[in-house]
Design a protein around this nucleic acid. Structure first.
Length: 584
RNA sequence: GGCCCCGUAGCUCAGCCGGAUAGAGCAGUAGCCUUCUAAGCUAUUGGUCGCAGGUUCGAAUCCUGCCGGGGUCACCA
């Protein structure tokens, strides 16, 4: 139950009743908004309706507003309507309306706020897709958490979501990986290997892979040319790397439903060839030359005729090569085929979560999806900006060359999945982020993760307190909801209900914008309001949720506390953060 | 040089599809615990929303140009 969207619909209906000319205007619903005013002094709900329709009606905004106000003045849910400013309409809603919301929370519980805007539509969220050449490093973490939370958020809004991981297992880097693993295999057989040659992966994580290879194959792969061992080693090491990555993701509570292998797109008759043929049939491929990039020309620039995709027809800046000089397909050719594959699997809504270094890649992906779906599908490419790790206020240095990258596992093991997830989601994805170890591990209100979890734990503790101080009553979470909330809840409590009533609205807006950080901010603000209400009991014991002399009052207040708990748990659930019942 | 992202209080950042007097946290200042609820709360100081135009009833928000910071730029993945 979303009070605001409910009123939005009623206001539109009222407008069309008052002004039949508006019945034709189907765009009206999109333009008219009903939202909580920024200044609570303006009431509970404010609409721009009069200002939006005034011009097409040829009337003054305030005149329309007055007519609307009259229309709603006899409404039972409305206590007062006022025309304000240039033509705003400010509603003050009856307490009963808010108490209805509270009851709805008690009835719907974890389903409160769940929306149907997705209409079961299929959405594919592709995220992480880290190269399968080693463990995940911190740079991958943000995209991983963002993609997962976004997927959960959209599921909560009624989308049929698939979490997908694209495995880049087709390029030359995988051969390098196999060679690196082969070296470790020889090492495991007791051969001296000395320094890891340049160009191979030096990481220790390949040592166990070499040992496993030795166990599986004995020395049967030893002393043979690459043609003999490349296939089995590659297969083995790829599987091992994906296990490693899945393990890293599991630490963050992330699980993909689909792992899509790039390799399966290649080969005769494969998706890439089919896609290329299809593009040729559509006249979207041609042989041509590209201008060298403006500014500084790369040293190895070679002017040659290439097989090009007409990306500019679909909004890209230049046409893009599909075939490399050695005759193999470009990465982008595979990517077109991959996104076409997703379209053929029925995903008209695609979301790609990429790292900051891929920002230049956005337009060509959108062009690709537009082309292969003939405009029927679209992809929203979300770029996650860099995370800077801080320890004692100093940036943590990460050198790729020396191999001392900070891994995802290092960070999660140190601060825990809850803190990592919340901190990364407590910021817009497209803004850079500082991750301060000291702050994230702190257990004070300065740490937003802790602050929200503490609010949840406090809510739970109120029930335990009731049990202790008022024994003999049923203080289960289901029992308190039979309380007479209308009789016992005061103005400050209703203010908290007003905030809880914004939860459904927050959810749908965050989902539409693909911005899970809005959920995190909402939770933080809700926690703050709850903490404030709680603390009134420090000054005045009669304001405490648990009142030893009045079980009925206690029950009513605990219903509210439970509602807070439900919404906090629901939001934390979407973010993939635990909602602990008590803090240790 | 092209493209993308960012520019809001001393610091870190929100600002919902354009909405009313631009918000929060930190830092600063002034308060609240011999803990049934202080891992918390209350009050308060502080801003030419990078600059200049445009669109309109109304712009931090949309458009254009500039300034500053970051990323990226045939064939790598």
């Amino acid at each position: 139950m979303d009070v605001f969207s409910l009123f939005e619909a009623r206001i539109v209906t009222a407008l069309q009743t008052l002004y039949p000319a508006l019945a034709e205007d189907t765009g009206l619903v999109d333009k008219v908004t009903a939202e909580p005013p920024r200044d609570p002094g303006h009431g509970d709900l404010s609409t721009n309706a009069a200002m939006v329709v005034a011009r097409p009606l040829g009337k003054a905004p305030r005149e329309v507003a007055t007519a609307l106000a009259d229309h709603f003045s006899s409404d039972g849910d409305v206590v007062s309507v006022e025309v304000a400013g240039p033509g705003f309409l400010n509603f003050r809603l009856a307490d009963g309306t808010w108490l209805d919301v509270l009851k709805a929370i008690g009835e719907q519980r974890s389903d409160f706020g769940r929306a149907a805007i997705g209409l079961g539509e299929k959405v594919n969220v592709e995220f992480v897709s880290a190269n399968p050449t080693g463990p995940m490093h911190v740079g991958h973490t943000r995209g991983a958490v963002y993609g997962d939370a976004l997927a959960s958020l959209m599921e909560f809004c009624g989308f049929d979501v698939t979490r997908e991981y694209y495995i880049n297992d087709a390029g030359a880097q995988v051969d390098v990986l196999a060679r690196s693993a082969y070296l470790r295999y020889r090492e495991a057989l007791g051969e001296p290997i000395g320094e890891i040659p340049k160009g191979l992966y030096p990481g220790d994580y390949l040592v166990p892979v070499g040992q496993a290879l030795a166990e599986e194959f004995g020395n049967s792969l030893s002393g043979h040319p690459e043609e003999v061992w490349m296939r089995p080693v590659k297969q083995h090491v790829l599987a091992a790397m994906m296990d490693l990555i899945r393990g890293d993701l599991a630490k963050l509570r992330i699980e993909h439903e689909v792992f899509f292998s790039e390799r399966t797109l290649h080969g005769p008759g494969g998706d890439i060839e089919q896609t290329l043929q299809w593009l040729r049939d559509e006249g979207l491929v041609y042989q041509g030359r590209l201008e060298p990039p403006k500014g500084k020309v790369p040293d190895e620039w070679e002017d040659r005729e290439q097989t090009l995709f007409r990306a500019t027809d679909f909004g890209d800046d230049v046409d893009r090569p599909l075939v490399k000089s050695d005759g193999s397909f470009t990465y982008f050719a595979a990517d077109i085929a991959y996104h076409r594959n997703k379209v053929l699997r029925g995903y008209t809504h695609q979301i790609d979560v990429l790292g900051a270094d891929h920002s230049g890649y956005v337009k060509r992906l959108q062009a690709a999806v537009r082309a292969v779906s003939q405009g029927k599908a679209s992809v929203d490419v979300r770029i996650c900006q860099l995370v800077r790790l801080l320890r004692d206020g100093e940036p943590v240095k990460m050198s790729k060359r020396s191999g001392d990258l900070v891994t995802l596992a290092d960070v999660v093991d140190e601060v825990g999945p809850d803190a990592v997830r919340f901190m990364l989601l407590f910021r817009r994805n497209d803004a850079p982020l500082d991750f301060d170890f000291a702050l994230v591990k702190e257990q004070t209100r300065d740490n937003p993760v802790f602050y929200v979890q503490y609010a949840h734990a406090r809510a739970c503790s109120a029930f335990r307190t009731a049990q202790r101080e008022l024994p003999g009553h049923d203080w289960s979470e289901s029992a308190v909801w039979s309380a007479e909330v209308s009789r016992y809840l005061g103005a400050d409590e209703l203010d908290l209900v007003r905030r809880l009533a914004q939860w459904p609205r927050t959810v749908t807006q965050a989902a539409r914008a693909h911005e899970p950080h809005r959920v995190a901010f909402y939770l933080h603000e809700t926690a703050a309001q709850f903490h404030a209400l709680w603390s009134r009991g420090n000054q005045d014991a009669s304001l405490r949720f648990v009142n030893q002399s009045d079980p009925k009052l206690t029950a009513a207040r605990l219903a509210l506390v439970d509602a807070v708990r439900i919404v906090l748990a629901s939001g934390l659930g979407i973010l993939g953060v635990n909602a602990p019942e008590e803090l240790s």
